[in-house]
């Protein structure tokens, strides 16, 4: 659908994400980072409320990050054969979400049973969420 005169060139500037997509994507990293921070607090203090916070923050990340993931996957299908960075972003986001889901199940173990696996999973999920957000906010070139 690009205009006839536009060359298929790598110098075409990337387009930013749709504002709603950007808003949805904005939740994931802060929520997963909050999960990690809460886990660290629980590990240091044994105060169970931090574990509760971690579980809800992670669940929020799964919900809103899940919507962003659906959007990214839809974009991937809509722009098949397009900018490869779209694929990289979607895979990172899928990985972040997948680790978040496993993390939710690990965090559902009672009391200290979630440690130390929960802490490691939170860290991995937060890093993946950061990378997914970074690659997403770089924007994608549309050609097709």
């Amino acid at each position: 659908m690009a205009s006839l005169s536009a060359p298929r060139s790598s110098v075409a500037p990337p387009r930013p994400l749709h504002p709603l997509h950007a808003i949805l994507l904005a939740f994931l990293f802060p929520l997963f980072l909050g999960t990690l921070a809460s886990d660290l607090a629980y590990a240091r203090t044994f105060q169970i409320q931090w574990a509760n916070f971690a579980q809800w923050l992670n669940a929020g990340g799964l919900l809103l990050g899940g919507l962003a993931l659906l959007w990214s996957l839809a974009g991937l299908i809509r722009h098949r054969g397009g900018d490869r960075r779209r694929l990289v972003h979607a895979l990172l986001l899928l990985a972040a979400w997948g680790f978040g889901l496993v993390n939710a199940l690990v965090h559902a173990k009672d009391a200290w049973a979630m440690m130390p696996e929960g802490l490691w999973l939170s860290a991995i999920a937060a890093v993946l969420a950061l990378l997914a957000s970074w690659t997403g906010y770089l924007g994608f070139r549309e050609w097709a």
């Binding site: 044994f46 105060q47 169970i48 409320q49 574990a51 009672d110 009391a111 049973a113």
Partner: peptide
């Protein structure tokens, strides 16, 4: 008040 202190000590 819990299965195994998951509501806190």
């Amino acid at each position: 008040n819990s299965n195994i202190t998951e509501r806190g000590m």
